[in-house]
């Protein structure tokens, strides 16, 4: 799955909904295998994508995966400066082009581990938890 999708996934276990630790999931940086896929860069869309994202969760997952270079506040609407363009290009690479091909992620509340195989996250629960 693409990095952007991590921004929409929480622990599927109902009882974890009352906790604030069920989102985002915690990605195991050592187990996650990343691949870059080419997608056309469109800065005007990227700004709109940022509107839809929880920046704290972007930072958290980026850090799990070893990227600590993001600004601590969500980049704001831009005056097409070169510097801003550099940030947007980095975000394009991270959010849209980075694919987690294999890996695992854990709920910070209950500790349950979910797996990503062949780029597909498996959020199904064993019968006793469903």
């Amino acid at each position: 799955m693409k990095f952007i999708t991590t921004n929409f996934l929480k622990c599927p276990i109902k009882t974890c909904d009352v906790s604030n630790d069920n989102y985002p999931l915690q990605y195991n940086g050592e187990k996650c295998e990343l691949q870059q896929e080419n997608i056309e860069y469109k800065p005007e869309f990227l700004i709109k994508i940022l509107d839809r994202l929880d920046w704290e969760a972007v930072l958290s997952v980026a850090q799990d995966l070893g990227n600590t270079s993001l600004p601590s506040n969500k980049p704001q609407i831009l005056d097409d400066g070169v510097e801003k363009d550099a940030i947007l290009r980095d975000l394009h690479t991270l959010l849209l082009q980075t694919n987690i091909v294999e890996g695992e992620m854990k709920c910070k509340n209950c500790g349950h581990v979910y797996y990503i195989k062949n780029s597909i996250p498996n959020l199904l629960l064993p019968p006793h938890l469903a």
Binding site: P12, S119, L123
Partner: peptide, 20 residues
């Protein structure tokens, strides 16, 4: 188009952040 398609193995919306 600028689109991402990410299929998920999941029961209904169990693992999806709310109101998205």
């Amino acid at each position: 188009t600028t689109t991402i398609v990410d299929p998920l193995l999941m029961d209904l919306v169990a693992g999806l952040k709310s109101n998205s």
